[in-house]
Amino acid sequence: MKTLLNVLHKDMLIEWAARSRTVALLSFAYTILLLFAFAIGPDAGALRLHAGAYMWLGLLLTSTLLLERSMRIEVEAGALSKLLLIPIDPAGLFYGKAIANTLQLLLVGAFSVPLIFVICDATLTENIGWLGLTLILGSAGLAAPGTLYAAMTARLSGSQLLLPLMLFPLVVPVIVAAVKATSLVMLGDPMDQIGAWLTLLACFNLIYWSLCGILFGRVIEA
């Protein structure tokens, strides 16, 4: 637990020190959302109908850059070897980094939402709390396997291609559930289905936050 907080603190410190990169990342997310609008629009109806899908695809594409970077800072100058010699508790390292990544994804999500509402003319039919919960569960669902996979590919030559290649098929359930839940919040949920999708997201998170925590130690030792 102490390791977790130390790692989280360290990652936040680095993100703050390199905040210009975070700004670039947010710009990337914005650009993707704008491009979706250009590719689909100017049919306002279609944009409004699929606003949730654009938001999550934008977040997914941004997440691969973010996750890759989060592990690159550990290996680019050998900091990971130093952590291993402390010796650091691998579970603490994983959960610290995964939570740091979740927070950054949430930041990207929080920036995307207003833009989605503006450019897609999206409406808010259900309680906005559901949208917040979807964002948290969805970001966490991308971050847990993403952190593990980033560690697996960090020292490989094709890491920028391999990471999305591994991550995308894995997070299909996250995208399906998060897009559905987001769309229901925006377009209305007459049949009370949001709960089911959020349950799916929660189950996914439960499985991968525990599984990846167990496997992470082996991966960083390798």
Binding site: P169, V172, P173, V176, W197, L200, C203, F204
Partner: peptide
């Protein structure tokens, strides 16, 4: 998990 989610 994928199977369940696609089914739903």
């Amino acid at each position: 998990i994928v199977y369940m989610s696609v089914k739903w």
